[in-house]
Design a protein around this nucleic acid. Structure first.
Lengths: 255, 255
DNA sequence: AAGTGGTCTAGACCACTAT
DNA sequence: TAGTGGTCTAGACCACTTT
């Protein structure tokens, strides 16, 4: 099982020593040399075995711990973690693709109004009931086909006359792609399952009662104030969220 | 804006220097001292400014880069990244809760059969059409209420007579919680939106046509062979996937 | 007391980018 | 050429756990 070529660090390689050791240990775990619950060799032993300094071994252990492959316990040792499904990193690529380049996608503005906040809107945007918000309804196309229906309530701030820009396509793109001028800092996302209503089905060229995703979002500014609450509706047959859990042999560490 | 207490490293604190510096820089980015696209001070400058060694600064930068807050470019500098939605870490807590302790949840076995693989099953499990698989149908309760309907095709391996154990409740729990004896290494997940069929609605005490999640899974063993393909059906009003994107002030780095 | 992980230093050398 | 990030060393000291 132990292969010299796959079990030593090649100092002439372009691959850094720490990355090689990460790969070696991950492989040993993946192939069952170390099973979940097993204790890894101590850091001192790894130093000697692979001929690297303590700092390098520590870095390797930290990377493996960050990846959720092992867990280090002070004074006891480093142990292989079992597969857990507590969290999963989901890919939003297909969603992001819609906003990547203008040629692939188009945004059609359906409605823009200034409306007083209802109780629900006020709660989501942390404002008073009756305060002014900008309600926007958009339809996002991929090529010829409508993909997403977007409803959004944006904080109406008379001191910042950004209303015009906010309604533009570029605003939505900036939301998803980021940008140097973006004032958005972070956001909450939630995925619900729902079915299309009458008007949603008409706009999206689908059928009433068809399965759909509801992707709710709240975005916050640098002062932690919510600036935008809304949700996307997407027919279930046009979108899918995928994730990988556990240990894969792929993926590097520091992109 | 610059506050001495929040801008220096306290060597007497229990919080390690690197963690303090991560917090300081994140705060400066979050409050807009450094905006997306801005270049951070060079590592040498940070060393002098905060009185730490190069290795410590490098560690801090690596952590921020791993968190997606900055991106380091060799020879150019370290730059603040804009908010992106490329990936989002979704919480599967509520799903995992179902399998955490026996008192909260129960599993009722509805059906167990040995069936030859159809074309679709064969493709998913990387076997030949007609090979034997174990088809399992389960209903998972939270307290008194049915929460999930599970359909699963498990590889039938006559050399490993694990069939009995595979059907047990503990098998499902081991799947989600991991365990020292688990042979599972990793898995693919996918979330679809769907609507309940007739029998699904009956079993789940819901209504036909109600919105629902379909959580498909494939689990693999240490030899990268798929051992289980199946999916959970959950009414949309009983489950929700949430995530945070961008920079939050919370969360530590090395749990 | 011995062994473990956790943090940190004060440099070194290299590769890359800008000027 | 100067400045940047990227890697790595060979230790040090500390906190914690086990024996």
């Amino acid at each position: 099982m132990i292969d010299e070529a796959n079990d030593t660090i090649d100092r002439d390689s372009y691959e850094p020593a720490y990355a090689q050791l990460v790969r070696i240990l991950r492989r040993q775990i993946a192939t069952g040399v170390f099973r979940p619950g097993d204790r890894l060799p101590s850091e001192a032993q790894l130093c000697e075995r692979y001929g690297v300094s303590p700092m390098t071994v520590r870095r390797v252990i930290n990377i493996l711990a960050d990846q959720g492959v092992v867990v280090a316990e002070q004074g006891r040792g480093t142990f292989v973690k079992p597969l857990e499904l507590g969290t999963a990193i989901f890919d939003l690529d297909r969603l992001q693709q819609l906003f990547r380049d203008e040629s692939q996608s188009q945004v059609k503005l359906l409605e823009v109004r200034i409306v007083p906040a209802t109780e629900r809107t006020a709660r989501k945007l942390a404002i008073e009931v009756g305060e002014r918000t900008i309600f926007i309804r958009r339809l996002i196309f991929q090529g010829e086909n409508p993909m997403l229906l977007h409803r959004e309530y944006v904080l109406y701030d008379p001191t910042r006359p950004i209303i015009e820009a906010e309604m533009e396509v570029t605003s939505l793109r900036g939301l998803f792609m980021g940008g140097n001028e973006s004032a958005l800092k972070w956001g909450d996302l939630a995925i619900d399952a729902t079915v299309l209503t009458d008007d949603e089905a008409t706009l999206l060229h689908s059928e009433v009662g068809a399965a759909a995703f509801r992707l709710e979002h709240i975005f916050y500014d640098f002062d932690n104030r919510p600036v935008s609450w809304g949700w996307f509706i997407c027919p279930g047959d046009r979108l899918r969220f995928t994730a990988k859990v556990g240990i894969h042999d792929q993926e590097t560490n520091n992109p």
